[in-house]
Computed example of a mutant assay.
Amino acid sequence: MKLAIFATLATSAAAFSVSPQKAAQAAAVSAAIAASAAAPAFAGDVGAGEQVFNANCAACHAGGQNVIMPDKTLEKEALEQYLAGGRNEKAVMTQVTNGKNAMPAFGGRLSEEDIANVASYVIATSESGWDE
Rank of each mutant, 00 (worst) to 15 (best):
A62K: 13
S126I: 00
V92W: 01
N66I: 06
Q95C: 07
A7E: 12
K76Q: 11
A78H: 01
T11D: 01
Q51K: 15
T125N: 08
I68D: 04
K100E: 08
K72H: 10
V46Y: 00
I5F: 14
E80R: 10
E50L: 06
P20Q: 12
V96P: 10
M69V: 14
V46N: 00
S128E: 14
S19D: 12
A34Q: 07
N66A: 03
N54D: 14
A116R: 15
G86C: 05
L110H: 02
W130D: 00
S111F: 05
A39K: 14
Q25H: 07
M1V: 06
S30G: 15
M69K: 07
G47S: 10
V29E: 12
D45P: 05
N66S: 06
N117Q: 11
A58P: 12
M93L: 08
P104D: 01
D131R: 09
H61K: 02
V96E: 04
A62E: 11
P70C: 02
M93I: 05
N101G: 07
Q51G: 09
A84M: 12
T94K: 15
I5W: 14
M1C: 08
A105Y: 03
A13Y: 07
F42R: 15
R87N: 13
G64C: 04
E113Y: 04
Q25G: 03
I68H: 05
K22N: 15
G99I: 07
A102R: 13
P40T: 09
E132Y: 12
G47A: 13
S19Q: 09
A14G: 15
